[in-house]
């Protein structure tokens, strides 16, 4: 297999672009919110890529788009070399089977009326998978660590713990033998004590060659388990690189702030000069230029002015540019310092 399992290029997703009838009569132009704006991610087999960002930055929308739950306005999603938008709906369904989604809240994502056996079996029935479906169900349960599987087959979700539920959710994704697993905050609703178990499970799946895209707002989880980290801010990826590099030497001011905000075990105080000012802006009124500029500590401290890029920060939009090798950053200040001090 050549090339990545999943290749997302310049993905754009808009919400609320539809005008209501009244708005049409009043001739009011409604501008849609661009929740995801030019996101590119690629995941190869055996890769665990973490998509990190705060609430509302478009992480989940990206995941839903990849899983086909939200239509995308621009860009392309390429699964195992096939561009989903060029496929017929039947082919697309078959392709989508290769990409499975695990949701954030295992208390909500399982139908309370279905027993475990039926939850895990349903995808097999939907896709009319050949073979002994019940055996596949047991195998999947075994794989996610619900052993012996027979003990769990006839339980209802409410009779399981949170960790067990999330394992059932993962089993119902695995049962279709996907090439790629998209996990949207897979552990954020779980007790800390069972998080490690679920994350280890994802780690094991990765070593077996599955590609995993994990969405999370927890940078330390991403640092511990991911191979690569993409940092997202307001619908855009602002920094992308090997997990270790992104965490130990973050380049984008936003990533630097995220890293600085992680509580440290040695109790060292936070460096407040790195913290962004104010709140995340409303995505329906996207800031001009670099979308982080209204909060950027580099601009606020006058450092940007010293570099002579303050106007560019305010007026010129910027996309990911390679810094070193596969570590890429979308920041005027970083670009300038590289070109002036190589």
């Amino acid at each position: 297999m050549t090339g990545p399992l999943l290749d997302v290029r310049q993905l754009g997703v808009e919400y609320g672009a539809r005008r209501s009838m009244i708005d049409g009569i009043r001739r009011r132009e409604l501008k849609g919110v661009r929740a995801v704006d030019g996101v590119s991610i690629s995941v190869s087999g055996g890769d665990l890529v973490a998509l990190v960002g705060e609430s509302g930055c478009g992480k989940t929308t990206t995941a839903m788009s990849i899983a086909g739950l939200v239509p995308y306005a621009s860009g392309s999603i390429i699964v195992e070399g096939h561009d989903l938008s060029t496929l017929s709906s039947a082919e697309r369904r078959a392709r989508r089977r290769r990409v499975q989604l695990v949701f954030q809240d295992p208390y909500e994502s399982l139908d309370p009326r279905f027993q475990v056996a039926r939850i895990v079996r349903e995808p097999l029935d939907v896709h009319r998978v050949e073979g002994d479906r019940d055996a596949l169900v047991r195998e999947a349960l075994h794989k996610v660590g619900l052993r012996p599987a027979e003990q769990f087959l006839h339980r209802y979700p409410h009779q399981l713990s949170g960790g067990q539920r999330q394992r059932v959710a993962i089993a119902s994704a695995l049962v279709l033998q996907p090439a790629l697993l998209v996990a949207d905050e897979p552990v954020s609703m779980l007790d800390t004590s069972v998080r490690a178990g679920v994350l280890e499970l994802l780690g094991t799946l990765r070593t077996e060659g599955m590609g995993i895209l994990m969405i999370t707002h927890d940078l330390s989880t991403a640092a511990r388990y991911a191979d690569r980290i993409c940092v997202m801010y307001l619908g855009r990826i602002v920094e992308e690189g090997p997990a270790h590099e992104v965490v130990t030497s973050p380049k984008h001011p936003y990533t630097r702030a995220l890293v600085a905000a992680v509580p440290r075990s040695d109790g060292a105080p936070r460096d407040h000069s790195l913290m962004p000012a104010g709140e995340t802006p409303d995505p329906s009124r996207m800031p001009s230029g670099c979308r982080f500029h209204p909060r950027c500590p580099v601009l606020a401290s006058g450092e940007a002015a010293r570099l002579g890029i303050a106007d560019r920060c305010r007026g010129v939009d910027i996309e990911l540019e390679p810094e070193v090798g596969d570590h890429r950053v979308a920041c005027h200040a970083v670009t300038v310092s590289i070109t002036t001090h190589p």
């Binding site: 086909g68 739950l69 369904r93 989604l101 949701f103 909500e108 994502s109 119902s172």
Partner: peptide, 13 residues
Amino acid sequence: SEDYVLTARAKGL
């Protein structure tokens, strides 16, 4: 609006 409906959609129903 429940997640399990979204899950079902994601599974291809």
